[in-house]
Design a protein around this nucleic acid. Sequence first.
DNA 1: AAGAACTCCTGTTGGC
DNA 2: TGCCAACAGGAGTTCT
Length: 294
Amino acid sequence: MPELPEVETVRRGLEPVFAGAVFEHVEQRRPDLRFPLPDNFAARLTGRRIETLARRAKYLLARLDGGEVLAMHLGMSGRFTVERAGEDARKPGAFVHAAGGSQAHDHLVFTMSSGAIVRYNDARRFGFMTLVAEEEMASHKLFRDLGPEPLGNEMTPDYIAGVCRDKKTSLKAVLLDQHIVAGLGNIYVCEALHRAALSPRRLAGTLAGRSGKANARAERLVPAIRAVLDEAIEAGGSSLRDYHAVDGSLGYFQHSFAVYGRSGLICPRPACGGGVKRIVQSGRSTFFCPRCQR
DNA sequence: AAGAACTCCTGTTGGC
DNA sequence: TGCCAACAGGAGTTCT
């Protein structure tokens, strides 16, 4: 489900009820998500205060007062929903979870000292949570090899060119690789490549010049990625099937898609006039305009 | 050893 | 209408 803009939107929604709050009660309804939950998970969370709620790549990181970090990944279908204790979930506007209360696939229910009930729901169970000692975060296998944040200063055209150099795979595959850039997923890679007018099939190595420095293609890819992510965050992410913000509200960046899910439609680039095509790359749908993306 | 294919799981959708 | 294959915002593991 969620790529960087959706995870960031969830983070912003959870922060007011998580940061500074204590887990008063933790209900764990199954032993595992994608992986087994930590031993004594509920007991280890109960009574802990969340100091900060951060995001790294597609992970939410809740730093706890005991020196541990609760790391949460939403996988494809994971979502958080916040309910105020005692609040009528049927109030106007609360349409997504109009029934309120427990839903199928609510695997974890956190009762917070802030008065919020936070439910983690994940039908496909590709999400996971784990507890990591704070001093082990940097060396932890989940985090040590993550690439730079695409909205940070490290992702420069020269960085992209450097990691693409000599790569025999497609540009699409490189951008989906979390070890190269952390946080992009299928939607925003498709959209960024369209903005940069680069073909997803292009050999990654062609973004590096003779010296290994960025060429004009790498120079326009970087701002395209940043712009797409910034706009998507601004829009509260993209809501297709599973995703919504923690209050049930939907993102609206899906209305701004140039290519994703739009096969057969006309390319929106002014004066292009090409048709959007769907192809499959490494088992996943790619949407692009073969006319203007080269 | 890089890169592609397969895998986990459930729900929804589109074509016959 | 119903049935069934294909597909879905991810990514670790296993193959070639």
